[in-house]
Amino acid sequence: MSTRARRRALQLTLAIPAAFLLVAPTLVVVPMSFTESPILSFPPKGFSTQWYEAVASSDAWQMATWHSLVIAVLSSMVATVLGTLTAFGLARGIFPGKSVAQAILLSPAIVPIVLIGIGTFFAYSRVGLVGTMAGLVIAHAALALPLVLITVTATIETIDPSIELAAANLGASPVRTFLQVTLPVIRPGVIAGALLAFVTSWDELVVSLFLTQPLLHTLPVEMWSSVREQLDPGVAAVSTLLVALSTVGLVMTFFLRLRQQRSA
């Protein structure tokens, strides 16, 4: 075996534990969702689609999926727009009190989430945002903003100042330079940030438990309500559907990136 091949084999071997930890949950959830047994235990018995039928006939699961999707899309858009603007402001802006502003903007990422549920309930109920979709979108966007900020700032740093200078020298207005030269460069960071923001909202349970009302359950709230009472394979069926959905999402992201790479 050549040195190169051996090195390659070593690299692959050492990466296996991480790959295993990443896919292991999915590996058990998918087969469990097709079990005949009404309980979530190993090994799954027989083959049945009853849990999918149960989920498909349940208004609660469908409504929760729909709410989670809408809230995650809207809150990640808000967080992405605000986070990207803020990243430029912090990276290039000069103003007094910048360090304080930075600390405030990043605090949602480090405050323990169990604290925020009650605080959010008290604050939002003063302005009638509890139990509304707007309230959930705002709260999730606030939690996601630091993640967008962090990913986008990373890419701002990689911008070669000379290309912006060149655009300006060729007569482009600052706004046009920004839109047509700067933004395309940072796009990977913005997309990564938007993805993390989407996931933050999609997975958020603690604050949502306080902000939801019966007709506005999100998926994690519905799942929590379900596993507190019954650990049945219906939860596995919902998860398998979500894994399938996220795989579709990933495939589409790749095509998107492929096209970007071609057009770049």
Binding site: V73, S76, M77, T80, V81, T84, L179, L183, P184, R187, V190, I191, A194, G249, M252, T253, L256
Partner: peptide, 11 residues
């Protein structure tokens, strides 16, 4: 700013 919202909207 136009590309990001559009791509996330497409997604």
């Amino acid at each position: 700013m136009n590309r990001t919202p559009r791509s996330s909207r497409r997604r």
